[in-house]
């Protein structure tokens, strides 16, 4: 008789985490592609241009910002959350797994992805400034152009946290769909439905705006971090609870 292997949840989750990093290496290639695209878009006047003139003088203002890089990185984070939820159970149960260990390894993987996304997006923004400095004549290198090391770290910190948040939202939505296919239709309908209805009645998508402002208007970094951590933890907690009796590979 073969002896039974004794193992525990955490060591299984750790093995699964390493496996997930390898299996999803392609996701980081997509990240590079996304950021490259965002970088090219930003080069060409990222946020907007305005022009005008009086007498014989004309002026042309280009607003250059790395916002698109960050926004696209966050969309990537949302996508990686959804795709991790989609393949998660099915793939994990090929080898050793239970439902909780699958989630734990997915969460660890998404946190890793968020850090990678946050760091690279911020650095990509720096690269944009450097390229701008050398290519645009008369670039205004006044206030706001140079970044102090501390605010660089703050940038990485904030972008990473936003990526943590969006990836957890993606994972939550993806798991809901795994739980019941109805959500494939229901979630977009709910999201765009509220946007549309609110926009028609009040002229503003108030719910979405206040949801974003709940995070973006927070002045204290500590509170911002706390909010992100609590909301993500809540979403992951819900996923673990509602999927604990879920069948795999039906």
């Amino acid at each position: 008789m073969m002896f039974l292997t004794e193992t525990n949840l955490m060591s299984v989750a750790k093995t699964q985490y390493r496996y997930k990093i390898k299996a999803n290496a392609g996701m980081f290639v997509i990240l590079i592609a996304v950021q490259l695209l965002a970088f090219l878009l930003s080069l060409n006047g990222g946020v907007g241009t305005s022009a005008g003139g009086f007498d014989s003088i004309t002026y042309n203002i280009k607003y250059i910002s790395g916002d698109i890089i960050i926004v696209l990185t966050l969309i990537w984070a949302l996508g990686i959350g959804i795709s991790t939820a989609g393949s998660g159970f099915k793939m994990d149960f090929t080898f050793i797994s239970n439902r909780v260990s699958s989630h734990l390894s997915s969460i660890a993987f998404l946190l890793t992805a968020a850090v990678v996304g946050g760091v690279t997006a911020t650095l990509c923004g720096i690269l944009l400034r450097v390229v701008m400095y050398y290519t645009q004549n008369g670039v205004d290198t006044g206030s706001g152009f140079w970044i102090a090391p501390l605010s660089l770290l703050t940038g990485i910190f904030a972008t990473t946290l936003y990526a943590v948040l969006t990836s957890s939202i993606g994972y939550f939505a993806g798991m809901l769909v795994q739980r019941n296919r109805v959500f494939i239709v229901l979630l977009p309908v709910l999201f765009f439905g509220t946007l549309f209805v609110e926009a028609r009645s009040t002229g503003q998508a108030q719910t979405l705006i206040s949801a974003i402002e709940f995070f973006s208007k927070e002045n204290s970094q500590a509170f911002f971090a706390l909010k992100v951590i609590l909301v993500s933890a809540f979403l992951y907690g819900c996923v673990i609870l509602f999927s604990n009796r879920m069948e795999v590979r039906k």
Binding site: L4, T7, T94, N98
Partner: peptide, 21 residues
Amino acid sequence: NSVKVSANMIFIDDNMAMPEL
């Protein structure tokens, strides 16, 4: 949901999900 059973059991069929890349 048993880790012990999963660690001592393997299920082979032609629908095993493996990483694409």
